[in-house]
Write a protein that binds this DNA or RNA. Structure first.
Length: 371
RNA sequence: GUGGCAUUAGCUCAAUUGGUUAGAGCAUCUGCCUGUGGAGCAGAAGGUUGCCGGUUCAAGUCCGGUAUGCCACC
């Protein structure tokens, strides 16, 4: 069976793989509006169920008929379950936040509310969001987890995955959602750095049956990605499955992951780095000359350095974004110096175009490989 | 012309009654950011304390002179 080359949205769009979804956690890609996102040729975005449930709340999203209408976005959209946030919140606030088989108990940030976030809530909310891919709630295996904790999180992840699938299917039937409007359902593989546990988790999730699997957990280990885990999940997944590297990653990590069969990615790096004055720049002179399989195919450009004050060159000649086609280095430095938000906007647009060019280049390689 | 106040890092300012190696913010330079509570974090460099002399074991700090600036009064 051939690998899927198409990601179909519930609005009828077809997106070829691999694809990168930047993180619009709160239904906004920081500093950009939806027209800006379109201009970067970004195909889809990732929103977060947990955060959108807090603000503005599912009733508001429901009134709009989904998060896409809410933010006037016509591309693809995936909703994250909230599993990762639950982990980071539990870690940050500890104490009264706890994970049990029922779900996650925690205090809602910035409020006095304490709620139990369950697999059912996550799925129900994601269906309200009307995204193209729904992600099951998973129990995050911490990078420092001992083998007992690793086992526990995997068992709970599988239990919740089963529950999520049943709730998902029931919702589809109850709401009479036609097949072409049915979102994809993604299982998430946990198990930390234990290869046998990762394999087992993958197999048991495949037995339950999903449209794809996510590479869960913390992707970084001593600053490097554990590609052994990526290989194990990919090898034990059906050919037609979507393989989604959750939170992956740096450009070179995406290149390597695509090589191992992964085809969907999301990461905060391009947007966060842009706001933190780190721009991704291809070393090639033109877009045509870019070779993402070569070593060191890109560099970082730090826009607010003093040396840029009198530099009238564009940030990159191998880029066709708003920043590179209209403004020069001197002006961008000025915008960062005076602390204007436009600096963040132009830098974010640039970094997103860098990533969309990366995916366009990988698409060509990927499609040639699968002919 | 007389009196008062000021002068310390590129910039704005700290530094008990004279007492270790004169500090901080911004700017500069390095690095970091991975299913985003964060336009964030870490680190480095940067000084003949306006200049000349004096008192003292010890001076950014006290004294005399001088330069520059601000204020007040003739």
């Amino acid at each position: 069976m051939p690998k899927p080359k198409i990601f179909r949205t519930i609005t009828g769009k077809e997106i070829s793989l691999p694809v990168f979804f930047p993180d619009a956690t709160r239904a906004v890609l920081k500093t950009l509006d939806s027209a800006d996102i379109e201009s970067t040729k970004t195909q889809g975005i990732l929103v977060n169920t947990f955060h959108l449930n807090n603000f503005p709340g599912s009733d508001v999203i429901k009134e709009h008929g989904g998060v896409r209408n809410f933010m006037s976005w016509s591309g693809a959209a995936i909703s994250d379950s909230g599993g990762f946030q639950v982990m980071s919140l539990a870690k940050k606030f500890g104490g009264k936040n706890s994970v049990s088989d029922e779900g996650v108990k925690f205090k809602v940030p910035n409020t006095k509310k304490r709620i139990l976030f369950t697999p059912k809530m996550s799925i129900d909310l994601q269906i309200v969001l009307q995204t193209d891919m729904v992600v099951v709630l998973d129990d995050f295996t911490d990078i420092d987890a001992n083998s007992y904790k690793e086992r526990e999180t995997v068992e709970r992840t599988i239990m919740w995955a089963k529950e999520c699938k049943q709730i998902f299917q029931k919702a589809i039937e109850d709401q009479k959602i036609p097949p072409e409007k049915r979102p994809y359902l993604l299982g998430v593989v946990q198990g930390g750095n234990d290869p046998a546990l990762r394999k087992e988790c993958t197999e048991r999730l495949v037995d339950i049956g999903f449209d794809g699997l996510g590479w869960g957990g913390w992707p970084i280990q001593d600053g490097k990605i554990n590609f052994e885990t990526a290989k194990i999940i990919a090898r034990n997944s059906p050919e037609e499955y979507f393989l989604y590297g959750l939170g992956v990653g740096k450009p070179e990590d995406i290149v390597e992951s695509v090589n191992l069969g992964w085809n969907i990615f999301d990461c905060v790096l391009p947007t966060r780095d842009a706001r933190h004055k780190r721009l991704y720049v291809y070393n090639a002179k033109t877009i045509d000359d870019i070779d993402v399989t070569s070593k060191n195919f890109y560099s970082f450009y730090v826009p607010d350095k003093e040396v840029n004050t009198h530099d009238h060159n564009p940030i990159s000649t191998a880029c066709d974004c708003l920043l590179c086609t209209r403004y020069d280095r001197s002006y961008l430095r000025h915008l960062f110096q005076v602390g204007d938000m436009t600096a963040g906007r132009l830098a974010t647009i640039h970094n997103l175009r860098f990533y969309s060019i990366l995916m366009e280049k990988l698409k060509i390689i990927y499609q040639n490989k699968n002919v």
